[in-house]
Design a binder for these strands. Structure first.
Lengths: 199, 199
DNA sequence: TTATTTCGGAACTAATCGGTTCCGAAATAG
DNA sequence: CTATTTCGGAACCGATTAGTTCCGAAATAA
């Protein structure tokens, strides 16, 4: 039954992406609704009708981002020839891709939101906890398989190694906000991989 | 020649600590001057006379925090029996001490500020770059000495290993904002130490 | 047609924002 | 005593905040 009335003239996902861009660059508190209007190319009324208030819009944008990240990690894993390259591909994606774009100093939208909002915003907190749990669920089996095949060191349990890698990723994307050259992050990644990969 | 007029009735450093507490908990943007008045126990007029505007007050508090961290790391290093224990002591201090207090979900004031402000606030940016450089300058010689004594793996260069440890610390303190149990950070630390320490 | 929905855009609210200024009282130095 | 400085506290500033409402126009479905 489609829908009554005049159809929406803008694409909801495109608008969400633009809102995400704005929040990503400046953070939640520092982004005013006027900023969002400019970034999204929409009028205030349209935004409130389509997304509710500022906080709801933020959550929608965050959810969209988190889904994209999980999908990207899944495809990075499934397209890798072996577990060693899967881990490598994941970290490379983090360093070079979404979480540290050509547009520097953005870091990772999830980590930025975590640091700014997670302690006081329960909805953001639960989303990010769930996200890290999902991520862990994707990585642990890869590490475990890699260890049993001798491709990765079994120095630590698969769970501990995964948690270590995730913490390390969080550090890299936080550090990215300083505006360091991408090469810096790449060197860091190679160091960590050197400790994790079997010789 | 002391000073003319009525002496200041509050302790500047104490007031800075309280301001730091407020900024630390909520971030820069979300902390209003009214919040600062409450936290510092001072009137608006007194704050502006003593510290100038909100941004200057923030920088003063940040400088104070960074100095304290550097001093803490120095003393952790100098009081350790060897280089291996020095690294261990530094990381333990990060996990248990200042950067992840009994008061949970605070993380590290420096990293919080880095993520929120470093991309757009040049004064914060330069301070944090300098801080990380200082930190690196303290740790690299320790790692180098530890490696040459066989206490630490020489898997990677001292510089690369130090950068890796620092990135890892940043990840831990960012993650702390999720409110995970302290045990989680401790396990992470042990995993990393297991990869760095010689067997 | 008629009912429905969205549009861009403006008008508007009540609250809060950071920041400034003035006050009389109190405490110090010279 | 006099000059100076800070105090707590209030008054006030213009600007901005998030959020709401109303408008006529336009586009769709039934």
């Amino acid at each position: 039954m489609a829908q009554l009335g005049r159809p929406r003239e803008f694409d909801v996902d495109e608008a969400l992406d633009k809102a995400m861009d704005a929040f990503w660059a400046r953070g939640y508190e520092a982004t005013s609704v006027a900023d969002l209007m400019g970034a999204m190319g929409l009028q205030k009324g349209s935004i409130y009708k389509a997304f509710g208030d500022k906080h709801s819009l933020f959550l929608r944008a965050l959810d969209r981002y988190l889904d994209e990240v999980i999908e990207a990690v899944k495809s990075a894993i499934s397209s890798a020839p072996d577990e060693r390259m899967a881990v490598r591909g994941w970290l490379s994606g983090v360093v070079a891709g979404r979480c540290s774009r050509s547009n520097r100093r953005r870091g990772c939208f999830a980590i930025n939101s975590l640091v700014e909002l997670a302690p006081h915003d329960p909805e953001v907190n639960t989303r990010l906890r769930r996200h890290l749990e999902q991520l862990r669920g994707l990585i642990v089996p890869v590490v475990a398989a890699g260890q049993s095949k001798g491709l990765l060191r079994d120095n630590a349990s698969a769970e501990a190694a995964t948690d270590m890698l995730i913490a390390f990723v969080q550090g890299i994307v936080a550090d990215a906000r300083l505006g360091r050259p991408a090469e810096h992050s790449s060197r860091l990644m190679e160091t960590v991989l050197g400790l994790v990969e079997a010789k």
